[in-house]
Every structure is written in C-alpha cells, then in structure tokens.
Design a protein around this nucleic acid. Structure first.
Lengths: 337, 337
DNA sequence: TTTATTCACGGAAACGATTCCGACAGGAGT
DNA sequence: ACTCCTGTCGGAATCGTTTCCGTGAATAAA
C-alpha cells in the first residue's frame, strides 16, 4: 500500500534495486555519496519498506505474540504495558490474543501462531489449561516462548513468575496473626502450578499454626463475577464460622466483598479479607483492601526482555531458566489495619 | 518457520504448486477428488500457509492496528476486548500500540502503520494531540480508519463516540440538583473534541442553573496520578468553597478522592464527586462513586464492526459516518446517594 | 608491465503464496 | 471429420526485499 517501493527509487536514481536496498541498509559496499543520495530521496518520498516482503525474505517478522486470558484485568494490563514498551524499544510489534480463560481458544491461537507470523511468544496460560500438548509444536519449531505469571510446568522453557508459595504463606499467616481460624481459600486455576503453589503456601501456613485443614474451605471459583459472588455468598450463609478469606486473584477478592455485603458480614470485624490484586485504588475501597501486589509491569518487562535477548542472539529455543520476582504484602483495613 | 510449504505438498502429491494452492483455496477448477487428496494431506502434515507470503501477494495483511493512549485503564481494556473479539470472528489479527498520551509517539506509530502492515486502524487519540496532519497520510493511502471515543474532528472518517455533551450536562446537573454550587470540572484532553463537549455540557448546565462560570474551577489535569492528586489537593486548600467535582476521566476521579482525603474533606458531605468511569467496583469504594459509565465493550465492538464492514467490502476509505452510543449515569454515595 | 586486491555496483535468485495464461484431454455439436 | 467447448491442471510471472555471485575499474603490490 505504501506507494513507493525500491524499484521506483532505483529508477529515479538510475541505480539498481540491489544498490538502493544496500544503501538504505547502510551496507559497507556502497559509497558514502550514493548512500546519501539514496537516503535523502527515500526520506523525501517517505519510502517505507514493505514489511511483508521483508519478513518473507529474511525469515523473521519483527513481531511477538502475547497470549493472555483477558485484558480487562489490572495485572495483565500492566504486564502488556511493560511488554509493549520493551517491544517498541527493540523495534518489534505486538500482536495480542485473548483466550477468555478457555483452553480451546488457547489451542487455536497457539496453532495459528505456529506459522511464522511471530518470532516469539509471551503467554500466560488460561485457567482451564491442563494439557501442554499444544506447546510441543512451538518447541518443535524452535519458536522462543516465555511464560509469565501463569506458567505451564510441563514444558521446559523460560518462565517468569512471582514468589507464589511465599505469598500464599504470608497471606495466610497474616490472617492467622490477625486472629482468623476459619480461613477460606478462594481460588481460580487450581490445576495450574501458580494455583497449587499459592494453595500450598496456604496449607503450610495452616499446618505451622496447628490448624487442621478443612476441605470445605477450599473454594474453586468459576467464570463470571456474578457466579463467584453467589458462590461466596452461599458459603458464608452455610458456614457462619468463617472469619477470613484469602482470594487468589483480584476478581475473587471483589466477589468476596460482595458476598460479605450480601450476607451482612462486616469487614474486617466478622470476616477479614486479603487478596492478590494490582488495583491502584485498593486503599480507596470500603474498607481498604489488604493486598498482595505483584510487580505486574516489571513482570511484563522482564518477560519481554528475556524473549528479546533470545531473539537478537540466535532465535533459538530458550533454556529452561525461570526467574522469580517478589510480591509485596500491603496491609490495609480489610484485615484490621 | 512452519516446516511444510506448498512446494513440499506438491511434490508429495505429484501435483503442481498452483494446483495445490487452488485445491486448498477451494477453487472451482480443481476436481473434487484432488481437492480431497490435497486437503487431507495438508491437514495431516499440519500445513499452514505462510502469512507473509500470502500478505505480500494479495495486498492485504488480515491485521488491524489498535492505537490507544494506555491499556492500564478500564475503558480501553474493555474496548480492546470488544475489538479483539470482532477481529477474531473475522479472521483478523490485532496489533496493539500505546501512545502513553504522547503526541510524538502517536505520530511515530501512525507513520509506521502506513506501510501496509495493517489493513485498517482503530484509534483513540492521545491527550496531547492537536494537529491532525499525521492522519492525512492514512487518508491518502486509503487506509480505513475508525476513531473511537477520543476522535479527531479535523479528519472526516468514521467515528464512534458516546453522548459526551449530554453526559457532561447530566453530570453537572446532577451535582447541582444535589445542592452543589461551586463545581470543579477536572479534565484531561481539553483541546480534544471529547473534552470540549463534556466541558460544554458542564458550562451549559451551569448557565441553565443561573450560576456564573468561574474559570478557576476549570482544572486541567496532567500526566501521572501523583501530579493530579497534588493538583486537586492544592486547589481544595486554596478554595474552601468547592463543594463538587466533576471528573472527566476515571483517573481524575481517583485523584479527587485522594485530594479530598489529604485535605480532610468528607465525601459527599463537604464535596460531592462524580466521574466518568468504567470501574467494575465503583460501588465498593469509600464512599461508592457516582459514575457515568460508558459502554466501553460495545464501543470496541461497534468500532471494529464498522471497520470490518469497510474491509470486506472494498477496503476503500470510510465515509464520514459517526455513531453515538449512550452513557449511563449511576448514582451512588459520592453524590449523596 | 603484470597480477592481485579492493571498491562500488548490477543481475538474478531466492522467500512462499497467488494468479494469469495457457495446454491438453475428451465430449458435444454440426 | 472437424470445430468448439469445458473441465483439470501446469508453467511462469508476480508481490517487494534481501542477498549471493559476478564484474569492471581503479589502485596497490610485484
């Protein structure tokens, strides 16, 4: 669509196409004078190389794919922010795909990405993902892939996460410290490693406090805020002994708030709530929410940085390196200040 | 990268490349039997056409570009959600670019997009954008463009917005109804049509209530939440008569909350606050925030739908059609209930 | 003066898919 | 028997770049 191409430039300058191409790419075998002539005319005519011709010839697209469950979520929004920034700095473009937490969508997207459209992939797997077969193709094709936050343990490639076990432990420990004894763990993605690590932190904190684990307090959220609110409401109605909730993701913390309101439980007097969240205005909630804040922006930046290091080196497969960033516990009113 | 290509398929089947291509594209001039043979082998080998070769030949990329100020924002997140969904349904890919509210970034991005990389553009312009010269190229290239929410009035192409004037009027009227007399209008993007419309609604509502407009109550926010909070705090300290704030975007409503807290103003007793916002948990804030909720997801869907209608028809320039969706005023505690 | 080397450039082959222009059957029409 | 289709397919051009290979001239080395 760009109106001018190499051939036109070459004709106008009475040079060959190859010379013009080399001049624009600052090749050493072109004299400074012709380089100048070519580049000035190119700038004047606003020449821009056709990206698809270029991508076809050199086998690289200068594009990365980002696959995430959803974007209307503060964590992933911030992560995309970091990714886009690093990509821009490296002259890469960013294709965004949403799985809507559905495994099937994820499979389709991965399959569509395995045709050279992208040079690398950054992915946070869907909550439904159990199987890792669809990632095998990426490995076959030597397509560099970095998992972030929600990793898939069955595939050995680079991944960047937060200290999920520790965070789960600390969150639970914090509630115990504040006197909670009947703590609900409200979770999504229970069969993902991230969910299991957080749960294990929860379990170990209980064990260390000599509190028996009650399986009825382990609640698996589903899709949709209304569903999760209803779920929590129902649980609170059935069990009046509940005095704490540890929500594994932001949306579940919100659902917990709503559940408490619906059942007239006071926060933090009756029930204390802590949740993973990147909500900027957690301190403005009623009551302000005690959060475990993940360094979402840094995660995006780090994941992208790792990917681009692999891309500019040799575009080979990434080693099974995994990096772990620290989350931060911010105590607020929902756990008693 | 994809391991199999047309030539390999052709050799394996003892057919020509052109025949295989036509068989896969379901051409009428290929017999049903060979079509079947070709398609089964292609499926078996997991053949996927090289997107760049394909894009180069047919001059279209099956990709659209989305240019927005930021993604860590509920409105734009929801809009992207709508866009991505429509794009997927039409077999298109979505490239996302962030301007970070900077005009220069926007120019660079638009320039980079004007080379055939995308078949169409969806854009919400940055807060700094005054000049529309960079959009002229898109028009020259006949690159279909749809503005959404933050439109650029100087270019006549399709746009989809909300009823910004009405919303501004209603928001201000609501504050007046609740007894406010000294209402701050806290705005970004004051030289964008969206900002001017909202402001005009504010001005007209004041006029209709026979309240003189005080220019010191028109506050132009800047970048960064800390800056905006400080700005509001300073204003509240200087002027104790302020009894209402109409925030033109979500982040400014939040800054207003923080400003009130810093100056120990009670909401809604001392100062009532209303703001544009797509915050899902506006009702959980302390106090719950009266909002004007834009149909963000629908805006994204509509904008994308308009774009794809143009793309599948004739990929010609879009007519200067503009569609307006309605926002919703949700009254909550921050305006007294 | 001859040979080698460097410099600056042109020609043409890729990359992988689409598509224009044929071509060669075999059957229909006269 | 001859022409004329129609149905199926192959060859080659094409999209716009990049890059391999080659070439002529000028300069340096012998």
């Amino acid at each position: 669509m760009s109106t001018t191409n190499l051939k036109q430039l070459a004709q106008a300058l009475d040079l060959s196409v190859s010379t013009v191409s080399r001049a624009l790419n600052d090749s050493y075998e072109i004299s400074a004078s012709t380089k100048l002539k070519v580049q000035t005319l190119a700038a004047q005519l606003g020449y821009q190389p056709n990206p698809y011709a270029s991508s076809l010839r050199r086998q690289q697209s200068k594009t990365v794919g980002v696959v995430i469950p959803e974007v209307a979520n503060n964590f992933f929004s911030l992560a995309i922010n970091g990714i886009e920034e690093v990509a821009r700095q490296n002259g890469y473009h960013v294709l965004v795909y949403l799985t809507h937490e559905e495994f099937e969508q994820e499979q389709v997207i991965i399959r569509h990405l395995a045709n050279g459209r992208v040079d690398g992939i950054l992915i946070s797997v869907s909550g439904e993902t159990r199987d890792a077969a669809h990632f095998a193709k990426l490995r076959e094709l030597k397509l560099p892939t970095v998992f972030f936050d929600r990793v898939c343990e069955q595939t050995d490639t680079a991944s960047i996460t937060t200290d999920d076990y520790d965070s789960g432990y600390r969150a639970t420990h914090h509630l115990l410290e504040r006197g909670c004894r009947r703590i609900v763990h409200f979770t999504l993605a229970q069969h993902l490693s991230i969910g299991q690590k957080r749960m294990q932190g929860y379990l170990d904190a209980l064990r260390d406090a000599d509190i028996a684990f009650d399986p009825t307090l382990l609640v698996h959220g589903g899709s949709g805020p209304d569903y999760n609110t209803a779920l929590m409401q129902q649980l609170l109605e059935q069990d009046s002994s509940i005095d704490g909730i540890f929500a594994a993701v932001e949306s579940l913390a919100i659902a917990s708030y709503r559940g408490c309101r619906a059942t007239v439980r006071r926060i933090p007097d009756d029930v204390k709530i802590i949740g993973f969240s990147n909500l900027e205005m957690a301190d403005l909630l009623d009551p302000s929410l005690t959060t475990i804040r993940q360094p979402a922006y840094a995660i995006g930046r780090e994941a992208a940085t790792i990917l681009f290091q692999a891309l500019i080196r040799n575009r080979s497969i990434l080693t099974s390196q995994s990096q772990e960033l620290k989350s931060e516990l911010v105590v607020r009113a929902s756990t008693g200040g």
